[in-house]
Design a binder for these strands. Sequence first.
DNA 1: CCGTATCCTCGTCGATACTG
DNA 2: CAGTATCGACGAGGATACGG
Lengths: 109, 109
Amino acid sequence: MLQILSVIGDKWSILVIGQLRDGTLRFGELHRAVKGISQRMLTLTLRQLERDGLVTRTVHPSVPPRVDYALTELGTTLLDSVVALGHWATAHRQEITTHRRRYDAARRP
Amino acid sequence: MLQILSVIGDKWSILVIGQLRDGTLRFGELHRAVKGISQRMLTLTLRQLERDGLVTRTVHPSVPPRVDYALTELGTTLLDSVVALGHWATAHRQEITTHRRRYDAARRP
DNA sequence: CCGTATCCTCGTCGATACTG
DNA sequence: CAGTATCGACGAGGATACGG
């Protein structure tokens, strides 16, 4: 069970899956879309997702090389929960930061 | 945005919130319910959740001491997404492990 | 019972440099 | 363009001991 949570408990995984909701993206496009992720972590995250059967990796033997990533059917089923989390996060972001400030203010007089 | 994902991107947070879905729990009860968590991490996780306004902490001044934790209204709204993730995880656990074995077998001949 | 305080150890991640 | 390799720093987190 903890093994499965590691799939979704990784923030990069969630963000990458979220980006793939509208269809196929290239490596570089993902790199630009997911702000703050390093090339290394993007590679590792995609490998992980591919290993778990959540995304497909398609290499086009061209020059320059082109690699496309897309959600599998299994990945799409997860997407619903992920977007729900995304909605929750954006909906309550302000509320949470307010709580944090209040909490910190109470403990640092 | 990444700050908010840190709330749910932590596996302990997710597990703790999941345990609180049926109501109030004491510290020790949570400690036993969430398998594998250390006392230290449970404390830190609960402080984090309290700081974010997802959990209330109620100290009963008795001997021995008793501390109850419960979800706030905000925490309950998150619970829906969390249980959705939980359902997804249990529903596809087998499928994912199968993918993993297949992937590993293909790369380790 | 419910913590806090230390210490110490792993793994994780970013930076950088280099290939096909 | 899309990676792989290497390294070094950093912090999460377990173990332990102790306090209210």
